[in-house]
């Protein structure tokens, strides 16, 4: 059974239709890449999955459970939305690290607050800390755990942000153009980390402008334009041999550039 099913998602901002009839599904352990020009709705789609935006239509199911159904017209309480959000993690284009906390504190903050709410912080404290350290080591940041975000490079910040998202053990980790705010030379270190996550079969949705990366890492590729899915399928097939005229135009600009 599919881990994530997105069915006929619609999103309007006023009269502007940002997402129209978006449907796709993915299995556990898969990586899905979403490509498309700016304004095509990629980011909005991720924001809908993370409940930062509410779709105007459609359904979102995780593991068969309906997380969101616009037809039900139900208003969720803050507590319900928090529960639903925990299925997803989100890595932002602009990192959004908490500036007053060290790398390790950034990673451990949310798990600590969650444990505190359950009243189990005392028992879990050491475990949370060790897990945070392990995640940062995995990101190649063993020597940066005590640094504050402003003391880190963009690539290091983004790797902390990835560790921070993983610390909540989401079912599906979403990346919103994770390298778009980085210098080209820092892009590589972040892509390497995401690649290693894919090799470890982390379930991921990656919105990116890195075509070669999308082709190599993803199991499934979606090309979006004007709020619609124009073409989707095997990444090699879509990128190397696109069928739709719009996809060809888009890719031609990339290979030319």
């Amino acid at each position: 059974m599919a881990l994530l099913e997105v069915l006929n998602i619609e999103k309007h901002f006023g009269a502007t239709r940002v997402l129209e009839d978006i449907s796709f599904s993915m299995e556990k352990g898969q990586a899905v890449s979403i490509i498309g020009s700016s304004g095509s709705g990629k980011t909005t789609l991720l924001r809908c999955l993370n409940f930062l935006e509410r779709p105007n239509g459609g359904q979102i199911k995780v593991g068969g459970e309906v997380l969101f159904d616009a037809a039900a017209g139900k208003q969720f309480s803050d507590a319900e939305i928090r529960q639903k959000r925990l299925h997803f993690g989100l890595v932002f284009q602009s990192f959004n690290l908490f500036p007053q906390y060290t790398a390790l504190q950034n990673v451990c903050l949310a798990p600590r607050l969650a444990a505190k709410e359950k009243g189990t912080l005392r028992q879990e404290e050491v475990e949370i800390r060790e897990r945070g350290q392990m995640l940062l080591e995995q990101m190649g940041l063993s020597d940066r755990m005590g640094n504050y975000p402003h003391q880190l490079s963009g690539g290091q910040c983004q790797r902390v942000a990835i560790a921070r998202a993983l610390a909540m053990q989401p079912d599906i980790l979403c990346f919103d153009e994770p390298t778009s705010a980085l210098d080209p030379e820092l892009t590589g270190e972040v892509l390497k980390v995401i690649r290693s996550l894919a090799e470890a079969h982390t379930t991921m949705i990656i919105v990116t402008h890195e075509m070669a990366f999308a082709r190599d890492v993803a199991d499934y590729l979606i090309f979006m334009d004007g709020g619609r899915i124009v073409e989707a399928g095997d990444p090699h097939a879509v990128i190397d041999n696109p069928q739709e005229e719009r996809t060809k135009q888009f890719l031609a600009r990339y290979s030319a550039g």
């Binding site: 959000r85 997803f88 932002f92 602009s94 959004n96 908490f98 949310a110 998202a165 909540m168």
Partner: peptide, 23 residues
């Protein structure tokens, strides 16, 4: 304070209160 600071907290499952007081 940039909106992204709130959103980063929310997607990690924090409450509004936690985001305000802790971040």
């Amino acid at each position: 304070i940039p909106k992204g600071q709130y959103e980063a907290g929310y997607v990690l499952g924090m409450t509004r209160g936690q985001v305000f007081w802790q971040i």
